[in-house]
Design a protein around this nucleic acid. Structure first.
Length: 289
DNA sequence: CACTTGACCTGTCCGC
DNA sequence: TGCGGACAGGTCAAGT
């Protein structure tokens, strides 16, 4: 999915598009649209106005005037797509685009606002979820209690970053980076990109890294995530922003999905391997065990 | 506890 | 063109 930069891009888009709008209707498929939803989920949504759209780690939080919050995790293939009825062509129109075909077979939840605008939660692989909880309960759910700090927070220091890895000495750095309880929001793309930037092999054991390695990884992680947010995220396959548009970070990627292409730093051919059960991309010259 | 692996789903791509 | 298998941006629940 959507890692931190993609979710942040969606958050910014939604924030501009739906804050202040009132929910007129909500429909979801019973199978996977709204797992764990209370039976009366609609009672807490219909008539509510969206007061803010926030993000923590890879989770979107849509706050409602009813003091309830809609939590959304996009997992691998989730999308939150807003469609303005004024500019919509309709499927089959010569100028139609992704948004004009919605809802489609991947649509799990549809929210309709009082002005006729629609918000679709689509999820091809059905791993994503939505939950509705009292806003005051959000910090108390297991995920929020366990998740690590936001890597882009101004107060997040390189010292804290290094210290968070102390309890994961015996695993490799890539697995540790992907662990949401150490640092929030890192996924497969930005793990590879940050490790390439820091010239660290993803199989390096955490116990083998020194203060300089952590410092460099900290810097590169913040750098790639900041750039990715600027570029609207990465679209390999299904990811789109709140307006149904793709992000362009992949045009700037240095290692991720670049196997067979030259390393932008030294020209050596980028290789693909498997680390922590995930496809992993490295420059075998810059990143050595 | 720390760590690894498989499961959850659907779609696509690659090799035969 | 069809078919099987591997793989895909993320977590979890099990296993060791």
């Amino acid at each position: 999915m959507p890692e931190l930069p993609e979710v942040e891009t969606v958050r910014r888009g939604l924030s501009a598009l739906i804050v202040g709008k009132t929910i007129a209707n909500e429909t979801h498929d019973t199978e996977k649209g709204f797992p764990n939803a209370p039976d009366d989920v609609q009672a807490f949504m219909i008539g509510a106005t969206v007061t803010a759209v926030e993000r923590r780690a890879k989770v979107l939080m849509i706050n409602l005037s009813t003091d309830y919050t809609l939590l959304v995790h996009l997992k691998m293939t989730g999308q939150m797509v807003y469609v303005d009825p004024e500019t919509r062509f309709g499927a089959g129109h010569p100028n139609d685009s992704l948004v004009d075909a919605l809802p489609d077979r991947s649509t799990r939840v549809t929210i309709v606002f009082s002005d006729g605008a629609q918000l679709f939660f689509n999820d091809q692989r059905k791993f994503g979820w939505m939950r509705l909880l009292p806003t005051i309960e959000v910090p108390n759910i297991d995920f929020m209690k366990k998740v690590g700090p936001e890597p882009l927070a101004a107060e997040f220091t390189p010292e804290e970053f290094a210290q968070r890895f102390e309890r994961r000495q015996r695993t490799n750095i890539k697995a540790a980076l992907l662990d949401q309880t150490i640092v929030a929001g890192v996924g497969n793309i930005y793990a590879d990109e940050a490790l390439w930037g820091a010239k660290l092999h993803p199989r390096r054991l955490v116990s083998s890294l020194g203060a300089n390695d952590f410092h460099s990884l900290y810097r590169k992680l913040r750098e790639v995530m900041t750039l990715a947010i600027e570029k609207g995220g990465s679209s390999n396959h299904t990811y789109v922003n709140a307006e149904g548009k793709r992000g362009s970070y992949m045009d700037f990627a240095r290692a991720f999905r670049r196997e067979g292409l030259p390393c932008p730093r030294c020209g050596t051919t980028i290789e693909k391997l498997r680390v922590a059960g995930r496809g992993t991309h490295i420059c075998p010259h810059c990143q050595v065990i």
